[in-house]
């Protein structure tokens, strides 16, 4: 079954062609993911280098909140499940279903941010601030950068879900999903780096 949005006047030649066999949107999105891998890769490689050098950072890391981290891992994994279910709906032409699942995903993104905020609050109250030491600087910068990606993903999904609810641009559901899963994968690595390795 082919899913087509509302018919538009005429489509551009550039978008009609598909020499690589991958639709342009998805191809471009994989390049976005590639460029994101090297951004987070550079940050985490730097962190890892410092961490391996300073054994004493283990004591600092002991003060991160493993329970909050684990909760957030669970929240993001579940949100990824909803994102992929939205994609399944989209491939079946069920725009309303896709929109509904995307809204669940956005809600879980919100839960993630709330947990994160509570976690930051607790840590700051106990004196583990950005400037306490370079471990904490890395902790706040890495999780903060990740949280920014979560916010960006939520906004993108909100836009896509509105369109999908009206049956428009359903291929976008998959694209925003790939981005969201990437954000999930980053968290999967942040979790052991900051919360388990102590």
């Amino acid at each position: 079954m082919s899913v087509h949005a509302a018919t538009l006047d005429h489509e551009s030649l550039a978008c009609r062609r598909c020499a690589s066999g991958i639709p342009a949107g998805r191809l471009a999105l994989w390049w976005v993911v590639t460029s994101e891998i090297v951004i987070f890769g550079g940050l985490l490689a730097s962190y890892l280098l410092f961490r391996l050098r300073h054994v004493s950072w283990g004591e600092e890391a002991a003060h991160t909140n493993t329970l909050a981290g684990a909760t957030n891992t669970l929240v993001l994994l579940t949100s990824s499940l909803f994102a992929v279910l939205a994609h399944r709906c989209a491939t079946q032409g069920d725009g309303r279903g896709a929109s509904r699942f995307l809204r669940f995903t956005i809600a879980l993104g919100g839960v993630f941010l709330i947990v994160k905020a509570l976690e930051y609050t607790g840590e700051i109250h106990h004196g583990y601030t950005l400037l306490r030491g370079t471990f904490w600087s890395f902790y706040y910068v890495a999780t903060g950068l990740h949280a920014l990606h979560v916010v960006a993903g939520m906004i993108a999904m909100a836009v896509v879900s509105v369109g999908a609810g009206r049956g428009r641009q359903l291929q976008r559901v998959e694209l925003v999903g790939i981005y969201w899963h990437f954000v999930d994968v980053v968290w999967i690595f942040l979790f052991p780096l900051f919360y388990i390795a102590k």
């Binding site: 994994l77 990824s80 499940l81 992929v84 999903g177 994968v185 999967i188």
Partner: peptide
Amino acid sequence: AFGIAVVKAGMVAAWFMH
């Protein structure tokens, strides 16, 4: 922890990201 992280990331990439 890191073994499981790699496996989890691989599963998400392989099946959720297709």
